[in-house]
Design a protein around this nucleic acid. Sequence first.
RNA 1: GGAGCUUUAGCUUAGUGGUAGAGCGUCCGCUUCACACGCGGAAGGUCACUGGUUCGAACCCAGUAAGCUCCACCA
Length: 900
Amino acid sequence: MTDLAKAYDPSLVEDRIYADWLAKNYFHADANNSKPAYSIVIPPPNVTGVLTMGHVLNNTIQDVLIRHARLQGCETLWLPGTDHAGLATQTAVEKALRKPDELPKTVREVLESLDHVWDKDAGKPKMALTRYNIGREALLKLIWAWTKDRGGIIIQQLKKLGCSCDWERERFTMDTDYHKAVINAFIDLYNKGYIYRGKRMVNWCPASHTAISDEEVIPTPQKGKLYTMRYEVVELPGTFIEIATTRPETLMGDTAVAVNPNDERYQHLHGKHVWRPFPKAQIPIVADEHVDFEFGTGVLKVTPAHDKADFEIGKRHNLPVIDVLTPDAKINCPDVPELHGLDRFDARKKSAEMLQELNLLVKEDAYENNVGFSERGQVPIEPRLSEQWFLDYRKMLNGKMIPEALNMVLGKHIKFHPDRWEKVYSHWLENIQDWCISRQVYWGHRIPVWYKGAEVACQESSPGKGWEQDPDSMDTWASSWLWAYATMDDTTRKKFYPTSALVTGPDIIFLWVARMIMAGLEFNPANSEKLEDNIAFKDVYFTGLIRDRQGRKMSKSLGNSPDPLDLIAKYGADGLRFGLMRIAPQGLDIRFDEKQIEEGRNFCNKLWNACRFRAMQGDIDAHADPFSKQLTPYAAHILARLDEVILKVDEAFKKFEFSAVAGALYEFVWDDFCSRFLETAKADFADANSPTREGTLATIDYVLSKVLRLLHPFTPFISEEIWTEFGFGKNTIQFAPWPAVSGKTLDNSAVEQAQHTYVLIDASRRLRGEFQIALNKKLNFKLKRDTALSTSESALLPSLIGAETLTIISQALEKTPVAITPLGDLYMPLEGLIDLDKERERLEKELAKAQANLERENKKLQNSTMLAKAPAEKVAEWQALKADAEAQITKLSEQLKSLK
RNA sequence: GGAGCUUUAGCUUAGUGGUAGAGCGUCCGCUUCACACGCGGAAGGUCACUGGUUCGAACCCAGUAAGCUCCACCA
């Protein structure tokens, strides 16, 4: 037996073990194997992204599921890959091109080879490096180079985390095969008549010059103004009607004003006209149900080109559509030179001034409303009329898509965990809008549609000379919705599709999860008549969000997200995984605190040292059978506890309750195994002639061999290291059988006594109720529940509750009719109001405590600045504690005030 | 406007009707030969609030408050 180090050092273990796993090809899934299949496809991260805490949570859960299934004897496939992330990646590269000197070498080389933009002699670009100057082909070359340079990063990081993906099957959404699948899906939907091209209002991002989907628009509260202006009625000179608007800069695009047909104030105006001030024109007054007569003045200016609702009104009343904005949201209206060419926000002020001059502005009110912001461009989106490609979900599956997609989830063919997300899913499906699948982005799968004059063809390659391809590409999600099957070849698909589980955040339930379900149903990847054979996955586990100590989302911009690689370096991948899993309850947000990861690391060290202790006692018996040996009561007890834990773990795994699994194992290892059992085992080891020594050793070996496997899904590295070090198996722990309960009945006084104790406690709890009923009967209380102790049960009372307790209770009953706890303590009901003096006293006590806390932290901080010794992380911790204390003081002071 | 989630010790939280638990932090004591990433001990809880159901509520029901999230609307 080799000596184990005093403290477990993951950095000496993890990389070596991972390399060994890869070398032995343990993660590769064999599609021809007869073992039951278990498969997961990774939610593909952005190809150029880096690992975040969200990824760590997400992928740890997937690895836990995969490793658990592998131990259970399944043939497991965890299919990894990355997403080209169209707009996001293109935006990132365009941004990087602004600083050519900081580009990665390989990208820079491509840039320097582009003669039309790169000045070789001057060693700098000839012009601003925008996508228009660079051009489609060249920009794509640059993005490919960028992707190749950055693309491996996140994959390497997943390996550091210990993910057991089948790297031979790694896919990218721009791979040739995958590209074909995406294009063919489009052509298929087009041929079936589900896809159409149409002029529709889309969310236009003026920064990135593309349409974006509703899901990518973030409503953001904005402080603005509500302008009330007045238009003169043409037919009634001198009569004005007042109109409220937040966007006077679009009034050149007004082609009507609208009132509610039931609004009595304006009924005499139906069919008449008003003067639009600039450019001056007569526009009709129309009556439309959409108008809310409570809002503003009850009159709405109708700008069909620049508002979704107005566009619909325009359609209903056959109004002309006048576009007065350029693609980058500048005013395009040569008839009004004062505004022409102005930015939309400057034009807003200017047009208000112009109305003022014409004496048509009644008032300006401060007003807060929600404005849709582009997720990528960080600017307000502009509703804009443009030619786009749409998918009509409702037509899919011969018009049955919506009910069938609902049925798959509500009928539990696909199970959501937690199931409350079913409601969100069905609400969205029931109110579904057509999907705008075209994007004005170069990076992505180009729309396979070709034009020649009025002719249109939908096919993979050009029909011939003179045909031009649609310049747009497809929404990223219109490629990733095929991820669950288009990543697999036929053989793989036969064995592993539908996939077993999907692990993802609820934020992409519409963007991705729902669409993957629909893609499975529509495209029949299982080649089966039965729809339920084509579901993309059987279980969906929705993770929570990771928040910081203050409860804020973790995000790059806030800088509150720790780098997972730093955490791995500090605590080990196992520590990070275990710490995170222990605090990640199903579907709830996680308030992240590094302390929790520290606990994970400490736990690994505890396990390591338990093994070290065992190693000191002599050789390990890999096939130890404690049941055939003489055992101490403690050994019998821990063996019984082990069975309990295995049952608990199996139960929790079935319900996807990973924190319950991790928690149960933590308690078992630390409290039962280390604190109780190993401490008592020391007696056996101190006495060389102890008759139970053999049994105790065997018990330790037996428990360890099982515990290591139970822990392996969470802490793969340390469990593998000890497993091989101790020789529990010739091979990796990964394919060892999942532990089952021993099934042995232990005839042992300790176990019996423990069980007896538990039974007594339980019985006394249950009996308490019945006992109390009996007591109340004696006191002539009116009982609603008609249960009483039988004679034999009553006879048992003294033995179960204890004669002494019974006496106390009887005595108490003489004095006052009160409720009684099982232990015989008297419980006095609170009478009347809270004692204000006592409450004040309590608050003052708490306040003093909080102030003391604050002082203590202040002192520490002061000392740390003076001595300049404390590490930065400690200082940060003290600052957090200080903030906590301050918050507490504010809260308490307020409570005290309200009392006085 | 609609829906969902959360509220337990200073902090992070466990707890599916029966004596309120853990880790961290704090305070006290220990370098005891597995582990100071540790061990032993202490202090610290009107379980957000109000009502209801119940012999009994942190837990079930109703309402209130605060915080978070999603959907819809937003002239």
